[in-house]
Design a protein around this nucleic acid. Structure first.
Lengths: 239, 239
DNA sequence: GAGTGGTCTAGACCACGCA
DNA sequence: GCGTGGTCTAGACCACTCT
């Protein structure tokens, strides 16, 4: 029952098994999982143990449970992904909704800091996406998105890219972004910012760096955003 | 068993009961709770039901469970509170540790925006604390903290204030800060910032507004911080 | 009514901390 | 060795959804 050096509860093993299935696409996003009873029989454990594993997966937002219907693999939709990871809002609370504009895409070698952030070897190939995002029709965020080429083959053939990239990562590449680490600081607008965002040079700019991490721990994306926060705020809930 | 219009599970009722006890100081921070068995007998439910309630309280970080020892009311310590709510760090990850300097404290009427944030009536009395916080010996953050006078009687007699205010709120006033909503934007240093933080006027400043919320939903604190993020970043994990 | 997840119980045994 | 929380099981019943 416990052949590893450290103790490993049964429900944890069930959790890992289900996680692996989802990660490898055994059940696709949006699909329904077998019922608790069926899983219990198949894995030869009690229903309560399956339940504990499923509850944990639900807390981690990988599955969704609906009473009377079943358990479903969470689908990264435009709305859900934006709500989770796009933090700009009107002061006071209402979330802002961006649209994308003017993507450009090229392939090149990773710069040292990018390689370090993405845990790549020096000089590995990356894809860089540059785009301006509009809020209420005004250019508000300019961002450079850097992806390991190895993880995203043929991405260049998919332009124009959708507004919600994480749904694309999940659907086309099986990469499920579950967490992101962001680092923010204040900066002054340089000439580039001024041109792209229509502000004066020297205006305040919120600089955001993000590393997005997949459910298996893969560092799949490094993103630098330059935001005009004259009319918006970055909203976050600490708990 | 269910006398309310909406269905309310047993473990939820147990949760609410325990929460009320903790909120009202029935068990003080750091104290041990009765064992699961004892609670089950006292409340006339099964041990499993008590367990589910306790597990939920642990997720909410109100109690801490230690195998072999018991269940304890979480104590807001200097370290834990800073780690949870103070987000400034070195780029790359190491958390910064601030010290406080030069507190000043006065009582006055709430300004309209403060009253709105704290859900107070117009013109209610508030306490304002102003202080500069040092990181590595350098003034880095200047903050104004606004508290409803009604919630914090006799606070003026407690100067100098400790660096970790939330431990004070909990210990002396029974106010348990569990969540905080923050809104950030980039700004330029004004003359005040320049003087207090030792930067040039017009330097970039990270402006942070926080509303801290107690476990019963009370809005207990409104805080505005002006940060010099030349050498630091605001680090946050999205999930 | 049949099938799903959600709640509740009772009891056995395991891992941990301490005296 | 005892008491604590942690795991696991088996079974009953409840609430919700769909047909």
């Amino acid at each position: 029952m416990n052949d590893s050096p450290h103790y490993r509860p049964l429900y944890r093993q069930v959790y890992d098994f289900l996680l692996k299935q989802i990660a490898e696409g055994g059940w696709r996003p949006g699909e329904i999982l077998p019922s608790e009873q069926q899983l219990a029989v198949r894995l030869n454990v009690s229903q309560g143990t399956v339940r504990k594993a499923l509850d944990t997966l639900a807390v981690d937002k990988l599955i969704e449970r609906r009473q009377g219907k079943g358990t479903f693999v969470v689908e990264q939709t435009q709305e859900s992904a934006l709500f989770r990871f796009f933090r700009l809002a009107q002061p006071g609370g209402v979330r802002a909704v961006p649209t994308s504009d003017s993507d450009s895409l090229r392939t090149r070698k990773a710069k040292p800091n990018e390689a370090q952030r993405l845990r790549l070897e020096a000089g590995a190939m990356v894809i860089e996406i540059a785009r301006t995002r509009l809020i209420d029709g005004k250019p508000t965020v300019f961002e450079r998105i850097v992806l390991p080429k190895a993880l995203f083959p043929n991405l260049d053939g998919r332009t124009p890219l959708p507004n919600a990239l994480y749904a694309l990562y999940q659907r086309e590449y099986g990469i499920n972004i579950t967490t992101a680490e962001e680092e923010l600081h204040a900066d002054l607008a340089n000439r580039d910012d001024a041109r792209r965002l229509g502000v004066a040079e020297g205006s305040p700019i919120l600089h955001i760096e993000r590393v997005a991490i997949g459910l298996d721990g893969t560092r799949a994306e490094y993103r630098v955003s330059r935001c005009n926060t004259t009319a918006l705020v970055y909203a976050v809930q600490l708990s």
